[in-house]
Design a protein around this nucleic acid. Structure first.
Lengths: 347, 347
DNA sequence: TCGATTGGTTCCAACGTTGTAACTGCGAAA
DNA sequence: TTTCGCAGTTACAACGTTGGAACCAATCGA
């Protein structure tokens, strides 16, 4: 309401508005005496710069956007926390948006709200086409999370990702290493999103290496990466005739795995004795589930760090930078859903 | 980058800047012919109003903040989705912030970023004192989520909440109705947050009504409302000597219950046969856990709707409105963790 | 002693928008 | 014919901030 402005501070300190501005921006050429006097007034009045005015004048707001398909997905929620932490270190504030995987919404965020309010956007795309994004990335700082869906030499924007093929391969190899031969995959996307395609590729690769033949009946299509789809897919798999029914399942996300675990529970099948379960995401929820879930854990802190730093560099620079692709590490955490037995968390 | 401004549109349409402004704001006194011509230019150039400039001039940005302690808590993530949906209907954009329950951070959000960038804030307070918030609420649109911590006639800000005492009472009564007599509570907060105190009150009330004496050993203090604290608290309870060990537990949040379920699993105790479990939050995670979790489900859509509408009204009004307290409904969903047996989700 | 240099500060204009007031026609009332 | 009213439009100033240039002392070298 009664917002304190530079003018108020200037009057109190007995200097000009511009001098106060110089002080708060840490500009050089301010004498120590003046600086102290101004800072005192700033403190007394509780002055805070007006971001709107600042942005209007400089073109920078110190705000960046993070757009994810779904905030209630533990993976994205945890990622958002890391992004916020990284951004805070650079003095940036994060505006979190939810796209529902809607292409229009994803684009609107990058062009609409983005261009006029935010300095840049970190986007986890789901529905939007690479071409559209590339067009935007050329005129607005944009970092994409997750695997890109076009060829390696056609990078049209900055990317931060994990090696999805390798991650899926490791998880599947782990399942095969238990001696399982009827390994199912839950997460083949009807819209064939890039992430889904690459995880399927890693899955098939691992099967091939293990000498297990790929059975399409064990890789049903799903609509969304949520618990409900995981449950329904697993239920259908569990009802397959003996001999076809899987003895292991690799889920493309922890949420799908949570649904699958539930379906197995309802069907009276034991994990991992009857069906071993592995997935990708490494959310806290997976660690605490019963049994705890074997999962490939992407280094979320690294992803967030790379994305924020990359975006910040692009924002700061006024010359067009070449687009970069950063890969963050991941690790397989083997837990009860494949090992069996009871582990004791924390001691 | 090359942002389109009113000036560009005005030149293209052959009218003054102000006329374009009038058109895009739907101001009266614009002839139909002019309006059409201007809208055509707007569309052709892809003009989007600059929120910073608009906010600077009018004092309104169309942005509201939602500040929650922790985004990775399913309850808050789900609530955020509802808030976003409600706000979108009113043409408002939501900036989601995470406070970690830190009092300084909570206040900074309301005064700092808030006052100069946002039109108003919906805050789920955890650490900040009511007095500080009341002071802020008087000069900045603020709606608080969750129970207030001061007397009924001292309302210093708008509130949207559920009846925590009643909710806790219903859950506990449900446990007592199973014939359980050694009922534990997990969620007594070391900092004695308002929510925690009220849930404890409802818990004790229900025990009294059921003729069960309250045993402080069964209501340990915890530090945070997360899975880890739930696990550690339940583990300690499970290790109590026979005769003292609980046969039921009421957790103050789904996250605590998830940890408690894990601890019971590790201890080899069956749910609900050995220990029945109930909680508050009604997150999706609780529905899918094994066994599914009996929980009191607050009407999150109602909470979000009331909060957003209340905040919007306060933003629009230039006269100080009286502070209001809105109560959203809640329901007890009894599931496997108290009923036993297997239910089949979806059909 | 004078001009040049430097540190420190101030003045001016501009960012894109909108509220207020002023201006233009034009038809209706006097 | 003059005047009034009104719909439709425009000019101007201001929101709070900052980049650039101008300004003013004091100090320096010659």
């Amino acid at each position: 309401m009664a917002a304190v402005t530079l003018k108020d501070v200037a009057e109190r300190a007995g200097v000009s508005i511009k001098t106060v501005s110089n002080v708060v921006r840490d500009a050089p050429r301010v004498s120590e005496a003046t600086r102290k006097r101004v800072l005192k007034a700033v403190h007394e009045l509780g002055y805070r710069p007006n971001p709107s005015a600042r942005r209007l004048r400089t073109g920078h707001s110190g705000l960046i956007g993070l757009a994810v398909p779904d905030l209630a997905t533990p993976y994205f929620a945890e990622l958002a926390q890391h992004v916020r932490a990284e951004a805070a270190q650079l003095g940036l504030t994060v505006l979190i948006e939810e796209t529902s995987g809607d292409a229009t919404e994803e684009l609107r965020l990058a062009t609409g709200v983005g261009a006029s309010l935010l300095d840049g956007v970190i986007l986890s795309p789901l529905g939007v086409s690479p071409d559209d994004l590339a067009a935007v990335a050329n005129e607005f700082p944009l970092v994409l999370l997750g695997e890109r869906s076009y060829a390696r030499d056609q990078v049209g924007a900055d990317h931060v990702l994990i090696d999805n093929v390798a991650a899926a391969r490791e998880a599947t190899t782990h399942l095969a290493g238990l001696g399982r031969t009827r390994i199912a995959a839950i997460g083949v996307d009807r819209q064939a999103s890039a992430t889904s395609r690459q995880r399927l590729e890693g899955f098939q690769l691992a099967l091939h290496e293990a000498g297990v033949t790929y059975d399409p009946r064990l890789a049903p299509s799903i609509k969304e990466f949520d618990r409900r789809n995981g449950l329904l897919a697993m239920r259908a798999l569990a009802e397959l005739p003996v001999g076809v029914r899987p003895d292991a399942v690799f889920c493309f996300s922890d949420l799908l795995a949570a649904g699958a675990q539930r379906a197995l529970f309802e069907a009276g099948l034991r994990i991992p004795d009857d069906v071993a379960v592995a997935s990708i995401d490494g959310s806290d929820e997976a660690l605490y589930s019963t049994p705890s879930l074997t999962s490939v854990v992407p280094d979320k802190a690294a992803i967030a760090g790379l994305a924020v730093k990359c975006l910040a560099a692009r924002i700061r620079s006024d010359v067009p930078l070449p687009f970069e692709v950063h890969t963050a590490p991941h690790w397989l955490h083997a837990r009860e859903s494949t090992n069996g037995g009871h582990q004791r968390l924390f001691r």
